[in-house]
Each structure stands twice: as C-alpha cells, then as structure tokens.
C-alpha cells in the first residue's frame, strides 16, 4: 500500500466544528500537535524547575542549558538591550524546536511544515521589529535602508535593494522553516514508500536512506529552530542598535 507523500500534511478537523462569525476555527490535528508540543515543553520545564538543586539533576540541567544557550545567543547577536525579549525568543525557539521534533515521530503531524504557521510567526516578528524600530528611533529608523559609506551614485540602488531585502524578511524567514520541514518529511515519506513498493529484496537501500535521512532531519529540526531564533535576534538587533 502506498500513499501520497503529501497526505501527511493534510489538516483534518477533530471534534466539533467551531465557527465564529463565519470563520472556521475548528480544532484540527495541527492544533492537537501544537498542544502536544506545548504540553511537552511545559512538562520538561516543570520537572526542570521543580526543585532548585545546587547540583542539578538531568532534567534541571537540560532546562538550564536551554536557558544559557538562548541567553548566550541573544547577548551575542543582539546585545544587552535585547534582554526584555528573552522570554519571547526562549518560547519561540523552544516551541519551534518541539514542534519540529514531535513532527519527527512517525504518524505525527509537523506543525511547522505549514506555511501559514511559520508565516504567522514571521509576520508577527517582522511587524513587531518594525514597530519597535520606529518606537526606539523614530524616523531615524529609516536609516536602516541607507547604509553608511556608500557612494552617492549607488545610494538609490542600494536603498531599493535594502528595502526589498527588508520587506522580504518575513517571506524568507517563514519559507525557510516551512520548506525545510516539508521537504524533509516528504523525502522521508517517499523513501518509506519505496521501501514498501520495492519489497523485501530491493527495499533495503531506501530503508538505509530513510534511516540516514531521519538523522539528518533531526539535525535540520534543531538547526531550523536555531536559525529561526537567531534571525529573530538579528532583526531585533537591527531595530535596537541602529548601526548599519
């Protein structure tokens, strides 16, 4: 039996249909896996912070490592001014990481493989960073489009390129994560399908590929969460410390 490799991305309604002012807001399998990821995060943090030990246990160590990792990432890329955004970056990184990792389980649903989810994050970050930039620097924030040390002649072209690159940030940010997750999972499914269709004799090669790809995908799952978080930090840095 072989199925469509894109079928895993199908969103299905679970439970009753919820409609508010004509918009379908039903609970779906996507929502379910968001909840599962969130619950896993909360369980990890709950057990990680249950007792304050001087010498941490395993789970406490994990949560503290996570904290230090993100704290270092923020201070390295965005500096001290970005400290108030630490909880947001922390939640963002952890949520995307857990959604990606939960998606690696067979028969599960990958929340981040949907463009609408990643686009929501990316647009929120984009709009938030832009507002923050204008609040912090007023109209001087537009300097971000005028890099210093560029010849006057080239300035209009450079500015246009800068504006385009700035406006394409949400698209690049969302598509990067979405495409990586979708591509990885599709490939896994395709190779899985090959294992079945080639049977006991020829199925070993795609199976070994599948195993290797699983390892790669776990790496990608972590890496994409990291990239998403670090790019958010870099955008924050642009808005907070205007030195382009």
């Amino acid at each position: 039996m072989a199925t469509n490799p894109m079928e895993q991305f199908q969103v299905r309604k679970i439970g009753p249909e919820i409609e508010i002012s004509g918009i379908n807001l039903s609970f779906t399998n996507s929502s379910l896996f968001m909840v599962i990821s969130a619950v896993l995060i909360l369980i990890l943090l709950l057990f990680g912070t249950r007792e304050k030990k001087l010498i941490p246990g395993k789970i406490q160590l994990i949560s503290e490592m996570l904290y230090n990792f993100i704290s270092k990432m923020i201070s390295d890329t965005a500096g001290q001014k970005a400290k108030p955004f630490f909880p947001f970056i922390f939640s963002l990184f952890v949520f995307i990481l857990f959604c990606n990792m939960v998606g690696m389980l067979p028969y599960s649903f990958t929340v981040t493989s949907h463009i609408i989810v990643t686009l929501t994050f990316a647009l929120f970050i984009f709009i938030g960073v832009t507002i923050l930039g204008f609040v912090m620097h007023g109209f001087k924030y537009l300097k971000i489009f005028v890099p210093s040390g560029v010849p006057i002649v080239l300035l209009p072209i450079i500015s246009i390129i800068e504006i385009i690159s700035y406006l394409s940030r949400p698209i690049s940010l969302s598509v990067r994560l979405f495409a990586n997750m979708m591509a990885g999972h599709t490939m896994l499914k395709v190779f899985g399908g090959f294992v079945i269709s080639l049977g006991l004799i020829g199925g070993w090669l795609p199976l070994s590929f599948s195993v290797a790809l699983t390892g790669l995908e776990i790496l990608v799952a972590f890496l994409q969460a990291y990239v998403f978080a670090i790019l958010t930090c870099i955008y924050l840095n642009d808005a907070l410390n205007l030195h382009h």
Partner: peptide
C-alpha cells in the same frame, strides 16, 4: 483551515 491554524497557534503560543 488557515484561520483555524492561526487562531490555535496564537492561543497556544
């Protein structure tokens, strides 16, 4: 299901 995904994402996140 786009509105639903956005809605639940916002709530859960």
């Amino acid at each position: 299901y786009w509105p639903s995904q956005v809605f639940w994402l916002i709530i859960i996140f």
